[in-house]
Simulated scan of single mutants.
Amino acid sequence: MDEEFTEAVLSIVETIPPGCVATYGLIAERIGRGGARQVGRVMSIHGQAVPWWRVVRANGTLPVHLMIDAQQYWRDEQTPVRNGRVIVKEALAPDF
């Protein structure tokens, strides 16, 4: 993963407002290269520095080991959630 791509991912994640989300794939699309897996890799290594709970899979979930902590953030930020998953259509950040 190159530094420019990493910085682009982290910069985008920092702009996602509370209560909103973006998907790994949409972030890659916005950057114009890479894909969901590459964004996921950046988030797995550097995501603790940004609001990682605002970046979800297309189905509104996160990796299992992150789901419990994410639930509290989503509740605190009033992110639309149903059955433990973010309702991506309702929570999608405005610029996505």
Rank of each mutant, 00 (worst) to 15 (best):
A22T: 09
R37W: 11
P80V: 01
T6W: 05
R85L: 15
W74L: 05
W74D: 04
T15V: 08
V64E: 11
I68F: 13
G32N: 10
S44H: 08
W52A: 03
Y73S: 04
T61L: 11
V42D: 08
E29C: 10
C20W: 04
Q78P: 06
G34I: 11
A49I: 09
I16G: 03
G60N: 10
G47A: 05
V81R: 04
Q71R: 14
T15D: 07
L92E: 00
I87Y: 04
I31L: 02
M67L: 14
W53V: 06
A49L: 09
V42S: 07
S44N: 14
G47V: 00
N83H: 13
H65Y: 14
L26G: 12
A91L: 11
A58F: 09
H46N: 07
V56C: 06
A28I: 07
A49Q: 15
E7P: 09
S11G: 12
A22V: 06
Y24F: 07
Q72Y: 12
E14K: 15
Q72S: 14
P80N: 03
V39T: 10
F5A: 04
A49K: 15
R54E: 00
R54S: 01
E29I: 05
T79S: 05
T6K: 13
R33M: 11
D95N: 11
M43N: 10
E4G: 13
F96P: 05
T79P: 01
V9C: 04
F96K: 09
T6C: 13
G32M: 08
V88G: 03
W74P: 01
H65R: 15
L10G: 02
E3T: 14
W74E: 06
W53I: 02
G34D: 02
V39N: 09
D69W: 09
D69G: 09
L10I: 08
L66Q: 15
E14L: 13
V13M: 04
I16E: 02
G19D: 04
T6M: 13
A22G: 06
E14Y: 12
D76Q: 11
Q72P: 06
A36W: 08
R75A: 15
V81M: 07
I87G: 02
